[in-house]
């Protein structure tokens, strides 16, 4: 490993979510500098990466968003296999949240609504590039084991700071009474 051994390697991942949790992460403002001293972001939609691939092993994977598509399933298995601690960040990752609101409807009806009914030019359901939707949107822990659950839509910057500080210190953050769904 080229990294200094003292630094904690962190990956952040964005699945089916609105990116609000990542925005909240950035909301840590000047505390980001402090965190950066102890943390190495090795994979994230927020940073420029030298490689497109997920590293062989990261210490902490922070995942935003629910599991909605075949691609999400593949990704989350890959992430779980290559991460020591998996943090579900925000209500979509923890509980499915807003993306699950499509669950009462059939996938073909949703696709038809999105790609055919409301489209004027070349209405068609894509069968390439866009990953296949799963029948139900699910939270991450229904697919792979999750180590830390951070509720909130989005979780506040303070909460995220607390979680990262605890993880950097080698502790499992105890979020009892610190978080709640929805806020």
């Amino acid at each position: 490993m080229s990294k200094a051994p003292s630094k904690v390697t962190v990956a952040t991942v964005w699945l089916d979510g609105c990116s609000g949790c990542h925005m909240s992460l950035l909301d840590m403002d000047e505390r980001l500098i402090e965190i950066a001293k102890a943390v190495d972001i090795v994979y994230s939609p927020l940073v420029d990466r030298k490689t497109k691939d997920y590293p062989e092993m990261v210490d902490v994977a922070i995942v935003e968003g629910a599991i909605s598509s075949s691609e999400d399933i593949e990704k989350i298995h890959m992430i779980r296999a290559h991460s020591r601690i998996l943090v579900a960040l925000g209500d979509c990752a923890v509980a499915g949240n807003v993306p699950t609101m499509r669950n009462p409807y059939l996938v073909k009806d949703i696709e038809s609504r999105a790609y055919i009914e409301n489209v004027n030019v070349q209405p068609q359901v894509p069968d390439q590039v866009v990953p296949k939707l799963l029948p139900f949107v699910r939270p991450i822990h229904e697919v792979v084991p999750v180590d830390v659950f951070v509720q909130g839509c989005p979780p506040s910057a303070d909460t995220i700071y607390f979680v990262l500080s605890e993880l950097v210190a080698g502790r499992t953050p105890d979020l009892t009474q610190r978080t709640r769904p929805g806020a």
Binding site: I73, H77, R80, A81, P135, F136, R138, E142, V143, V144, P145
Partner: peptide, 11 residues
Amino acid sequence: PNGKTAPDGHA
């Protein structure tokens, strides 16, 4: 019990 993967099947 703390396996890294779980099946994809629905609940």
